[in-house]
Design a protein around this nucleic acid. Structure first.
Length: 415
RNA sequence: GGUGGGAUGCCCGAGUGGUUAAUGGGGCUGGGCUGUAAACCCAGUGGCUAACGCCUACGUUGGUUCAAAUCCAACUCCCACCA
């Protein structure tokens, strides 16, 4: 029996149902672009297949297909806000075997502008990256650039952080921009609720995001953009009822995938885990879940344990540029004096090209000297670290021993 | 040889009588960074002390003054220009 096409199965499975019909033994997954099962086949190639669940926790492994290829989950997605993963080239990303990257509609809309990307033939061609891309809508910028934005039910009025010019971003416009950019996965325009928030504020913010989600879906359908999967975003801050309500309302609207937003904004690790759990429990098992902005290696594993499939975070890239590097034995800061005469590898347990080639002493020197190569080498390593961690997690889930794997990792990592 | 300018904490460099252990940079030491306005931000950086505090510091020596990095004199060294 074939896997039901995504377009026809947007309603959630009954809670508690075992997703056995979603388990596939096919080792080769095909997007089935033209197999007749799809009434709107060419517009609807996005498909998620759940392939394994861990017996000890909610962790799951699977894969999703997009117009630009297949991605195995759980996955870490490097962030390339301005159509560039900072310090790396796309050749570097291919060499790292990154499968999907993030970009940001708000930033690309302001610069270089949507028209230039369209003229280039879409973002993939513009940046020479032919694997999947996910774009964030600009919702996070409402949060991070709050002092330059005014939020109204209709949308958000922004002042550009680049030149101060005024712009209006609505759910409809956020869809139009992302559709024009041509990402494989596009995100609803949401409001990332500030932390801490009172119940009332969190509720109002979440409900506005839900109304916007319905408008995003309508615009996405009106534009017949289903070749690009649209993900809804759960909000609700640190409140169980709100997280649950948000997830349920999104499922009612129906999306090809669901994100959990409004986490990693200053709350405790406990609160982040709880918010993830509350939301994930109300999301359909046969759709991918994406925990936005997460995270550190330990938060990444926490999310996987709770049934999350996709993650993005600036931490590996930003920290790399600031000298903070992940290793199997914990984070280290290559600026520290003790590395100046340490001629061993950055992480003896790491197989990345940087660890195989350069010493800590050399990396420490490059960083102190302000050499641009320090940024690139550090970033290569940190991204490699996260991608390898994801690969190891997938393997552990398929072997049914995710919690063992996580505990072993954390014991050595020291988190 | 003459004239003028200058010597400040690891380095550069403010400060021209009194909250000055001494502004700012850099360097150095450490910390932070979670849908990227971030190759960024924060803190510390004379000695002793847990702290109150004490001591030592603005080329050297001496002087004026209640009080000197700041005023005066001599000396040492450096720089610029002129011979």
């Amino acid at each position: 029996m074939g896997v039901p096409p995504m377009c026809m199965t947007e309603t959630a499975m009954p809670r508690g149902a075992h997703p056995s019909f979603l388990l596939s033994s096919d080792s080769e997954f095909s997007p089935r672009l033209a197999n007749g099962l799809y009434s709107r086949a060419m517009k609807c190639p996005f498909e998620f297949i759940l392939e394994a669940t861990d017996p000890g926790c909610a962790a799951r492994a699977g894969r999703f297909a997009t117009p630009h290829g297949v991605v195995e989950t759980p996955i870490f997605m490097p962030v390339g806000t301005q159509a560039s993963v900072k310090a790396l080239s796309q050749e570097d990303l291919y060499a790292l075997n990154a499968k999907i990257i993030l970009s940001n509609a708000y930033h690309l809309y302001l610069r270089p502008g949507t028209e230039i990307i369209e003229e280039a033939g879409g973002l993939h061609r513009f940046m020479h990256w032919d694997r999947p891309i996910l774009t964030d809508s600009g919702g996070f910028q409402v949060f991070s650039l709050a002092q330059m934005a005014k939020v109204r039910p209709e949308g958000v009025t922004f002042q550009s952080h680049i030149d101060g010019s005024r712009h209006v971003l609505t759910p409809e416009k956020a869809m139009d921009i992302q559709i024009a950019i041509g990402a494989d996965i596009i995100m609803c325009f949401d409001e990332c609720t500030h932390y801490p928030a009172t119940y009332e504020k969190a509720a109002a913010s979440m409900r506005q995001t839900m109304e916007w989600a319905a408008r995003c879906k309508a615009q996405w359908e009106a534009r017949e953009a289903s070749g690009q999967a649209l993900f809804g975003i759960v909000q609700g801050s640190t409140f169980q009822e709100l997280r649950q309500e948000s997830a349920e309302r999104l499922v009612e609207i129906g999306f090809p995938g669901y994100a959990i937003g409004g986490v990693s904004v200053g709350e405790s690790r406990e609160d982040m885990r709880a918010a993830t759990e509350w939301a994930a429990a109300r999301l359909p098992v046969d759709k991918p879940r994406y925990l936005m902005g997460v995270g550190s290696p330990e938060d990444f594993l926490d999310g996987i344990e709770r049934g999350v499939d996709m993650f993005d975070c600036v931490m590996p890239t930003r920290n790399a540029r600031n000298g903070s590097l992940f290793t199997s034995e914990g984070k280290l800061n290559i600026r520290n004096q003790r590395f100046q005469r340490d001629f061993g590898p950055l992480d003896p347990a790491c197989k990345c090209s940087v660890c195989r080639t350069y010493s800590r002493a050399y990396l420490a020197h490059l960083y102190r000297a302000g050499e641009i190569s320090a940024l690139r080498l550090n970033t290569l390593h940190n991204i490699s670290f996260m991608l390898e961690l994801a690969a190891a997690a997938r393997e552990a889930i398929r072997a049914g021993r995710f919690l063992d794997f996580k505990n072993t990792f954390l014991e050595k990592y020291g988190a």
